[in-house]
Design a protein around this nucleic acid. Structure first.
Lengths: 134, 134
DNA sequence: TTGTATTGTAATAAAAATTATTACAAATAA
DNA sequence: TTATTTGTAATAATTTTTATTACAATACAA
């Protein structure tokens, strides 16, 4: 499991807390990580219309819409892995009656799990999350 | 994300399908992966009392109890990662008011998500899962 | 207009995690 | 007592993740 979701959430929380444009170097400083990686994640958030940016001097990043209109599910969707509970690297033996079918049944299970997860994350907005900080 | 859950589930499904003891080489053959890794995952399943084993010639592995008494949640618990939606490697800057608190809030969120996930997986037994194969 | 700060992104390197392999002791059935 | 199997350690190979370097493009401001 990689750290993309917590990173994206951290970025969104910082943007939510700020009033103007925020530079990637500032974000990286608060997160204590590499600014290029932060910008990459920001690129992805922009592509998913959760963040807007302005290039050039005194440029930076901001939320694309009010924090009350952004759910944690939407943030999660931007970094969602293919297989929520992991994917084995091997291809099961097609000569085995179990192996032949299992990936399909796992996919169905994962669809269900995904739905439950998105429902859970959909019930909290970025504003709600932000409110926990004091 | 690693492939431990699908691997564990594959093992459990194969053991469920078999009647006697099953050798790790057979499991590895069906899964098309390394037998030592399969035995390692089996070790973990044994430690968690979902599987029993017998050493020596004509030894092998079997479910420790009926498939109707094993839920997918219990299988998941044996391979559960620390952080369900990922963990960033960096330590946020403690001088930042957001960074200082965010890990704690993420942990709380993850507890909630975990609970929802376990509830979902707890509603399906290994027997139920097995029934999908035909 | 020229310098400076910033985004955006490619290329590459470094580090970490995952998966595979080799080796072999211990157990046990035949 | 031999053959087969579990159990596990040590190590290697591979893949993924994270970090770094480099630089073009943009836009503000002096």
């Amino acid at each position: 499991m990689n750290g993309r979701f917590p990173i994206a959430l951290h970025i969104m929380t910082l943007l939510c807390d700020a009033d103007g444009l925020v530079a990637s170097e500032f974000l990286a400083g608060s997160m204590n990580m590499n600014a290029v990686l932060v910008r990459k994640e920001l690129s992805n958030l922009i592509k998913n219309k959760l963040v807007s940016s302005q290039t050039g001097k005194s440029g930076g990043y901001a939320l694309a819409r009010p924090a009350a209109d952004i759910t944690l599910a939407q943030i999660y969707q931007t970094v969602k892995p293919e297989a929520i509970l992991g994917q084995a690297k091997n291809q099961p033996n097609p000569a085995c009656p179990i192996g032949k079918q299992i990936n399909q049944h796992i996919a169905t299970l994962y669809d269900d799990v995904d739905k439950a997860l998105l429902e859970k994350l959909g019930s909290t907005t970025l504003k709600d999350f932000m409110a926990k900080f004091h």
